[in-house]
């Protein structure tokens, strides 16, 4: 996956040159376009807006919103809230970590899945809850969670 910024994006951002107050907006646009923010992208933003590279990187690493590595095609989010915790979210997390070979915050080598944990999703009646892409799945066992993730991946293989 190339992280070079497309010409359209550069043209879109050009009018903002020299205006540091647009830092977050430009970073969002880069992420929306490329999927993540690479060191080269940071350098581009730094030069364009006149913001030091240290400040750009500080902002990128501060907000959960920004990713510094390419993300998986699918995102699996596990709820960390109290109800889910009590309902066995820990076991689901361990099972998924083992099955996918990654820890929360990481992405599988083939860029298929990114695993994340999030604070309460507000679906406590369904505890424990897992969100795969846009879909909510509740009252899971570890085995069921793994199966759902596998189905998602193989569904992709079928479609693709």
């Amino acid at each position: 996956m190339s992280d070079l910024l497309p010409i359209e994006l550069r043209e879109e951002c050009a009018p903002l040159a020299g205006h540091p107050e647009h830092l977050i907006h430009v970073l969002r646009r880069v992420q929306e376009t490329v999927g993540f923010i690479s060191p080269d992208s940071e350098a581009f933003v730094s030069d364009l807006l006149g913001v030091t590279l240290s400040r750009v990187h500080g902002v990128v690493t501060f907000y959960h919103l920004f990713y510094t590595e390419p993300r998986g095609r699918h995102t699996v989010r596990l709820c960390r809230g109290t109800a889910c915790h009590v309902g066995g979210a820990g076991g689901i997390q361990s099972a998924l970590e083992e099955h996918l070979g990654i820890k929360p915050g990481e992405t599988t080598e083939d860029l298929a899945v990114t695993l994340e944990t999030v604070a309460c999703l507000g679906a406590c009646a369904l505890a424990p809850v897992m969100v795969v892409d846009e879909g909510y799945h509740g009252k899971l066992t570890a085995a069921e969670a793994v199966a759902i993730v596998d189905r998602t991946l193989s569904g992709e293989a079928e479609a693709g």
Partner: peptide
């Protein structure tokens, strides 16, 4: 560093992982 020189340092990461260093 910001006031007197090139501004190469900043807070990186957040929360309990915050450190002061250069970009990357």
């Amino acid at each position: 560093c910001r006031e007197k020189s090139q501004g190469i340092l900043d807070f990186m990461e957040r929360g309990m992982s915050t450190i002061v260093t250069t970009s990357l």
